[in-house]
Amino acid sequence: MIQSPKLNELQREYADIFEIDANLDRLVKKIELLSYVNPLNIEKEKHQFFASKYSVDPEFRYPKLKFSPYKLHRMFFSQRLERIEDEQIRTMYKEIIYYYSNMVQCIETIGQKKKFHYNSLRVYGSPTEKDVENARFILHYADEPVSGEMEKIFTAEEAKAYFEDFAEQYDFPLNIKFSTHIAAEAMVSNASQSLLIKRNVKFSKNQLHTLANHEIGVHLVTTYNGQQQPLKIFSNGFPKNVETQEGLAVFSEYMSGALTLKRLKELAYRVLASDSLIKGYTFSDTFDLIHGQYKLNRDDAFTITLRAHRGGGFTKDRLYLSGLKKIYKRYLQEESMEPLLSGKVSLDYEQPIQKLHKLGLAEKNQFTNLAYLQNLNMNKTLDFILNNLK
């Protein structure tokens, strides 16, 4: 973070911005959506779903709320935004408040299918026709030959050692925790600045390479860069930051040579699973689409279906493919990724963020993504697909 005397001077000059930013920081700390939307009984329900021959939909249980949604809403909308003189920054914070208010509504309706799905759509949107066409375009490609690097032979403990080794090239602390209550094999918790690894699963060499470049190379880089910024919003997240952040993370997989057609197909399946929610598909309907029609193995099909149906209909997963498309386009136009690595930021807010830089309210990044320095992708099929996404 910038030096104290300079920061103190900025806080005096832009007292209203810092006050509102600090107020929102205290409120936002309570609402990390992923810590609430991941079911507590995944393995038990998975076993029962398979035992029923895919006919009885799982009944997931979720963590209890640790805050009062009503009080949070009241505090969000009590912020005196009119005190911020700069119209662009004032509008930005207004949109930030609406975004987090929608997030609270998501959390308080987890498990209530129609309500939660509707609130999820307000935060993450729904796949467009182009998104669905892009997904089907990817899925029509024949699977590549399975290599030894795809064999799942590494334990969670071995994965921990791999990630610790990988993170040594980045000069920030790596806090790793094991969990049984996450839908992914590994994920970053922004609130606790830790990398969560799913216990009791096996990893392939390619998967470790992929997760390291995705989770550490982008999600932890943006977590630690965000913490160095004068304003807390860089750490907590701008509206629509998920699409940009996941796009950057998958692009990091691509640049490091870790991205495979299999992984790209996984993102395509996620789009179709998100699209199935709009069509009113049940859990077993979506599973049948992915496993029965597209012939994906049942464990992977269950994970993709779970990710889409958790909470009652969660559309976040649709954003990985569209985010990758936007970041890849930016790469082709030779635009720098550095502004997007300054925290949990969004392409939609580049102009306001440029304004913050001019005012001294945003700083240069302390960390960067090392995979972006050289394109190591050797897969021409991936290049063709990415160049032809609509």
Rank of each mutant, 00 (worst) to 15 (best):
R330F: 01
Q11H: 05
A212G: 06
F154L: 11
L272E: 05
R61F: 01
R330K: 13
E243V: 07
Y99F: 14
D288A: 11
A249K: 09
I304Q: 01
Q228W: 07
K205R: 11
K325N: 12
A362C: 09
E266Q: 12
F178Q: 08
L376V: 06
S52W: 10
V104H: 01
G360I: 05
K279N: 14
I107K: 01
Q351D: 13
G313A: 05
D131L: 00
G323R: 00
V271A: 04
L267I: 01
Y372Q: 11
Q48V: 03
K114Y: 14
F163Y: 11
A22T: 07
Y331I: 03
H214E: 05
F384N: 04
S52E: 08
S52Q: 06
L272K: 06
N206V: 01
F76T: 05
F302P: 03
R136M: 12
E87C: 04
G247Y: 01
K358I: 03
L319S: 10
G313I: 06
H140N: 07
F234D: 03
Y36T: 13
R90Q: 15
F18V: 03
P5F: 08
L359P: 09
A159T: 09
I42P: 05
H117P: 08
P230L: 13
V218M: 07
T305G: 02
R310C: 06
K66M: 04
K316A: 03
E168S: 02
A161T: 15
L33K: 14
E19Q: 13
E149I: 07
M1R: 10
E334T: 05
E85I: 08
R136V: 10
L121I: 15
R310V: 11
S179H: 09
V132H: 07
E338W: 03
A249G: 12
E108F: 04
L196R: 08
S256A: 06
S101F: 12
S336R: 02
L376R: 15
H309T: 07
R90H: 02
Y93Q: 07
Y328P: 02
L376W: 06
G217I: 00
S4L: 15
K198S: 12
Q48R: 11
S284L: 01
R307Q: 12
L195C: 03
S78H: 01
E253S: 07
L81Q: 02
L376E: 12
L267F: 09
S68V: 05
M103Y: 09
E45A: 01
V123R: 03
I353P: 03
R307S: 11
Q207P: 13
Q366N: 12
F384S: 06
N38R: 12
A184Y: 13
L81G: 07
N377V: 00
E338K: 12
K113H: 13
V123S: 08
H291G: 02
R122W: 12
N375A: 04
D131W: 00
R136F: 10
L376A: 11
A51M: 06
K265V: 00
N134M: 05
S342Q: 08
N225H: 04
H117T: 07
I182L: 08
N225V: 02
H47C: 02
M378A: 13
K329N: 09
F283I: 04
Q48F: 12
E164N: 06
L196V: 06
Q227K: 14
Q228P: 10
D131K: 00
G226V: 10
K344D: 12
E151F: 14
G111L: 01
D299F: 15
R199W: 14
E185V: 15
L211C: 08
A273T: 14
K152P: 14
Y281A: 09
S189F: 06
Y331A: 06
A183I: 15
